[in-house]
């Protein structure tokens, strides 16, 4: 098991390295010149070159990458002479548009995105799994049909519509204060304020995911119910409750864990649409602003890398959890 873990960890690190290299290469070949974008139309070539130097873009891409990696571990210096300044490690770069270390920007945005993701995650698991189990247990009955309707509704409604609808409803019934909306409240200071702030974004995100999870849970529960070992469990004399909880759900929910982990990791990279609708200053807004408004390369690189890292790391965690749940995986 330890050997397996070590091997998987090594592989994960390798993947992250490869991803980060590709990110650098991709932005290097894009026909955009960040240095050119730093000043207005009448900018002289000399200023552009000076800025290119300050941005650290005047060296070959592999050197840029090297500096970036080094910056993750030791403080990073920008510019030289009197104009020099530094970002403390781990430094993901410096945003000249925002005049901030990228690490600071991310540190501000991450709690917001994390709060959004974790709340939505539990909400959609709760809704999706319970509806799925009820639908499977009442196959063909009205509960099943109602859940099918919910699934169709949830899957077909795009987030940007459901989000706006939820926002409008919340505003109309004065459930949200439009001025306070999107202001960050730490859950450690005021858990209720935090939850109030996020409840509608959670609903928006959870609606879409819950629909998928309902469908998936329903079909998994039905499939597992027809397994021979479930018949064995009944033949032993176990009650339906125990058969469902201990025998069916354990096997039916294991595969859901895999996608749930990856969906969660995907959200940690930023929920662009939901964050924008509800004015939440999370990673999604940070990156979309960096792309659309300023072509703020250090921010784009950092958020892209972060999103990819979340997915890769979560994948590892999911595999470990799976090995814990399914003994057949453990031996391999």
């Amino acid at each position: 098991m330890l050997k397996y873990l070590a091997r998987r960890l090594a592989a994960t690190l390798m993947v992250i390295t490869l991803v980060s290299m590709s990110v650098f290469l991709i932005f290097d070949v894009l026909p955009m010149d960040p240095a050119r974008l730093t000043c207005g139309k009448g900018c002289s070539p000399a200023v552009i070159e000076a800025n290119r130097h300050r941005l650290g873009l005047d060296v070959p891409v592999q050197v840029q990458y090297g500096r970036f990696v080094k910056g993750l571990f030791v403080d990073r210096q920008y510019g030289d002479g009197a104009a020099a300044f530094s970002c403390p490690a781990p430094a993901f770069g410096y945003s000249f548009n925002r005049h901030e270390c990228v690490t600071t920007l991310i540190a501000d945005a991450l709690p917001v995105t994390f709060s959004l993701a974790i709340g939505a995650f539990f909400l959609w698991l709760l809704i999706g799994i319970s509806l799925g189990v009820i639908a499977a247990k009442r196959q063909g009955k009205w509960q099943d049909k109602a859940s099918t309707a919910f699934v169709l509704f949830g899957i077909s409604l795009p987030t940007f519509i459901s989000g706006i609808l939820i926002l409008l409803m919340a505003l109309k019934f004065r459930l949200i204060d439009p001025i306070e909306m999107g202001r960050w409240v730490s859950p450690f200071e005021s858990p209720i304020g935090w939850a109030k702030n996020f409840i509608f974004p959670w609903l928006t995100l959870a609606l879409a995911f819950a629909a998928t999870y309902t469908r998936f849970t329903r079909s998994n529960v039905l499939e597992t119910s027809s397994e021979d070992y479930i018949r064995t469990a009944r033949a032993k004399g176990l009650s339906e409750k125990v058969v469902l909880r201990k025998h069916i759900l354990r096997a039916a929910l294991a595969p859901i864990l895999t996608i749930a982990g990856l969906d969660f990791a995907g959200l940690l990279g930023g929920a662009i649409i939901t964050e924008n609708i509800f004015n939440l200053p999370g990673l999604g807004r940070l990156s979309i602003r960096a792309v659309l408004n300023d072509y703020d390369l250090p921010v784009i690189v950092a958020t892209t890398l972060l999103a990819a890292t979340f997915v890769v790391v979560m994948n590892l965690l999911v595999d470990i959890a799976y090995a814990y749940i399914d003994p057949r995986v453990r031996v391999a």
């Binding site: 021979d228 070992y229 064995t232 033949a235 004399g237 354990r250 096997a251 749940i325 399914d326 057949r328």
Partner: peptide, 19 residues
């Protein structure tokens, strides 16, 4: 079931819970 009457099945491969 289990106490007064018990049953075993054809395919022992799939009749036991894998987890």
């Amino acid at each position: 079931r289990g106490k007064s009457m018990a049953m075993i099945f054809q395919d022992p491969m799939s009749a036991l819970h894998p987890y």
